[in-house]
Structures are given as structure tokens and as C-alpha cells.
Amino acid sequence: MISLSNSPNGTVSSTTATKRLARAIMVSAGEFSLVLACCKSVERQQQILNVLTEFSSTNIQEISLSPAADVLYTAITSAIATTQPEALMVRGLESVVAINQLIISTNIMRNEFRKQFRFPLVLWINEEILCKLVWLAPDFKDWAASTIRFDVANNQLVEAEPQAINA
């Protein structure tokens, strides 16, 4: 298996998150679901996608948004045309110039996603985009069961708990 991190805990965390992503895609086969995959590095996203093929038998189509994209729904429908992929990964949100406009239009058009897409939609985001989704597209963001994070190691989660208890 390809390693996603130099540290053992980082590898375990990334492997667990990658398996969660594969499971979320598999469980939602044939119906719309929104999955948010949070990762700060584009290079790391690519590593995770390479490893994902080990955990998922689903044929995952991938599109990368243009920096000039202003409506997510239109960008997706243009890319997939009339086909319904088994799953779709959207990358490049961090490079979109008018990201606020794109996120607001996504929230406004959210019902079209459910009506027209019969596949899991995975949006690769970073923390900044996640915050914008919470503030600018709360209704759309709420469709995601939970955000799958690839940048938090298990030991960081464990270490955070005792500090909270001692405070």
C-alpha cells in the first residue's frame, strides 16, 4: 500500500479517512449524496486519490474546476454532459477566483443537485472553503453527513482531549 504520511499516526489517520471516503461513496451508489473531503494540500489530495482506488471498486470520475468557474452546478453538468458517473470528485475549488459567488449560487441551486445527480458528489475543499460553505451555503453544506478530514493525525485528536479536561 502507498503511504500517505511519514509518521505512523498520520498514515493510520489518512488510511482510516480514505476508507471512510470509499465507504461513503459505496453506500451512496446510485443516489445523490454530498461528501466533503477536507485536505489542505493539492498534492496530498492526489496521493489520497491514488490510494482510494485500492479501497473502492467504484468508477470515480474526476473534474477540476477552472479558476473562472462561477456556478458549480453548471461546471458539473458541462463536464459530465448526459452521463451519470458512479461517483464524481470535484477538485480545484481553492483556485476559483469568484469562490463566494460560486458557493452562494450552489446554495441557491442546491435542489437541482438532488434532482439531477444520481451519484455521490465529493467536493475536495480546504479549511477556508469549508468555512465559506458554513457561512455562505449552510443549507447545501448540511447535506454532507460529515466532513472527512485528511490533515488531522490521530495523536492530535487524543492530545486535544486532556488539555480540554485540565483547562
Rank of each mutant, 00 (worst) to 15 (best):
114 R>V: 15
89 M>L: 15
71 V>E: 09
72 L>K: 04
78 S>W: 10
82 T>M: 03
74 T>L: 11
142 D>H: 14
147 T>P: 00
113 F>G: 01
155 N>Q: 07
50 N>F: 11
78 S>K: 09
153 A>V: 05
89 M>E: 13
70 D>C: 08
111 N>Y: 14
100 N>D: 03
45 Q>T: 11
111 N>T: 12
98 A>M: 02
65 L>D: 00
26 M>H: 14
65 L>K: 00
155 N>T: 05
128 E>T: 12
159 E>R: 05
56 S>P: 05
35 V>Q: 06
25 I>D: 02
141 K>Y: 15
161 E>N: 11
82 T>Q: 04
129 I>D: 04
60 I>C: 06
115 K>D: 07
55 F>M: 02
73 Y>A: 01
96 V>P: 01
32 F>M: 07
36 L>H: 05
114 R>A: 15
98 A>V: 01
69 A>C: 10
113 F>R: 04
30 G>L: 03
59 N>C: 13
28 S>E: 00
108 I>C: 02
99 I>Q: 09
105 S>E: 05
92 G>P: 04
28 S>F: 05
92 G>K: 08
42 V>C: 15
31 E>W: 07
22 A>Q: 08
161 E>I: 13
58 T>R: 10
155 N>F: 04
88 L>Q: 04
95 S>Y: 09
22 A>L: 08
128 E>P: 07
92 G>C: 09
60 I>V: 11
117 F>G: 02
60 I>G: 06
101 Q>A: 12
148 I>Y: 02
159 E>I: 02
164 A>H: 05
108 I>S: 03
31 E>K: 10
109 M>D: 08
102 L>D: 00
153 A>C: 07
39 C>M: 14
42 V>A: 14
43 E>W: 15
122 V>T: 11
111 N>M: 14
123 L>R: 03
54 E>K: 14
50 N>Y: 12
108 I>G: 03
